[in-house]
């Protein structure tokens, strides 16, 4: 959780723009009015600060997620579930050929604390890195306050199913979740549930579409139902997925509404492999050896389906599991 009081190792005093700089191993991160500057011993990289902060937000909120979170074609992280690689050019064919790529491994808590401190300092009051472009202010300019409330949102992770007693609550106007402007036509009725006394913890249903229509974030898969390691992680998507996700296991997408176009490339090199156009009702696997980025013109509902088994990356690496879910 980022708070104003958090200070981490490798944090500088504010620069002339009001922003602190951060170091992690031999990496340094600095920002000015427009850009994030990342330096390492054999190279440097510049990103516009808005996409940088949007990517940083997802990396933290998802706890480094499954596999690789590419901020762009150069910078990113790889989750080893307890420790995390921070890399520059590791998954860029040309950076590797030029031998200017760099990778360092950090304990999970160390890199997370630094990233949280950076996000807390670099996000200004009017900017929400989780919001769609038309629903937030600018990320640019000199330092102008903070938006700790936005950058410390917790990711919903239901234990069994949203709406059950002692589990994640439903969303409503009263709880601060208004219907999004692009989902104003989504039916808000709930299922009719009749429960006999004593079965309140088992007879339960809720409107997932209503729940999603009230999401205040984009590109942030949250767990709504759990069948052992099978996790339903629906999310609402608008504009561009701020990261390029590199899989370490098969991941599935089920398009619940509207349309998303996915650009799919090779995980290691970034060479294009396919475009996947998904319309309502479409269902597609993302193989374990690809990276992908989505584009959604209208806010859409996407069901991301994950297998949370910690065994999977090792099984795939050892050839005990395929990169694809089925052969036919």
């Amino acid at each position: 959780m980022t708070t104003e009081k958090v200070r981490v190792n490798g944090e500088s005093e504010p620069n002339e723009h009001g922003y602190r700089s951060y170091s992690l191993g031999e990496f340094t991160f600095k920002r000015d009015e427009h850009f994030a500057h990342i330096d390492w011993p054999t190279g440097h990289h510049v990103m516009a600060v808005e996409p940088f902060l949007k990517a940083l937000m997802r990396d933290i909120a998802w706890n480094f997620f499954y596999g690789t979170v590419n901020f762009d074609s150069v910078i990113g992280t790889v989750n080893h579930y307890g420790n995390v690689d921070l890399f520059a050019g590791r998954f860029n064919e040309d950076y590797r050929k030029a031998e200017i790529d760099h990778l360092e491994n950090f304990p999970h808590d160390e890199i997370k604390a630094t990233f949280e401190a950076m996000l807390g300092d670099w996000v200004n009051e009017s900017f929400d890195p989780f919001a769609a472009p038309q629903e937030t202010g600018s990320a640019y300019g000199d330092k102008d306050g903070n938006n700790y409330e936005a950058v410390t949102r917790s990711r919903v992770t239901a234990k069994r199913m949203v709406g059950l007693p002692d589990d994640e609550p439903l969303r409503s106007d009263e709880s601060g979740y208004a219907v999004n402007r692009m989902f104003a036509d989504v039916d808000q009725s709930e299922p009719e549930v009749s429960v006999e006394p004593g079965y309140e913890n088992e007879v339960s249903a809720f409107s997932l579409f209503k729940y999603l229509s009230r999401s205040d974030v984009t590109w942030n898969p949250s767990v709504v139902s759990v069948c052992k390691d099978s996790l339903y992680c629906p999310t609402t998507e608008e504009f561009i997925l701020p990261i390029i996700h590199g899989n370490d296991r098969v991941e599935w997408f089920l398009q619940l509404s509207d349309e998303i176009v996915w650009e799919v490339a090779d995980r290691e090199t970034g060479r294009p492999r396919a475009n996947v156009v998904m319309k309502a009702g479409d269902c597609a696997a993302m193989p374990a050896d690809i990276r992908h980025q989505g584009f959604s013109s209208k806010r859409s509902m996407l069901l991301v389906w994950e297998n949370n088994s910690s065994e999977l990356p090792g099984m795939i690496a050892r050839g005990e599991a395929l990169n694809v879910p089925v052969k036919f």
């Binding site: 509207d258 294009p272 475009n275 319309k279 597609a284 696997a285 993302m286």
Partner: peptide, 25 residues
């Protein structure tokens, strides 16, 4: 908001560049 139904759905698809469509199931 566009939802599908048994009687009204439109499929997208895989536009292959350098891959097999079967990999996307």
């Amino acid at each position: 908001t566009v939802f599908g139904s048994l009687t009204n759905f439109t499929k997208g698809g895989v536009e292959v560049i350098n891959d097999s469509p079967q990999n996307y199931v």
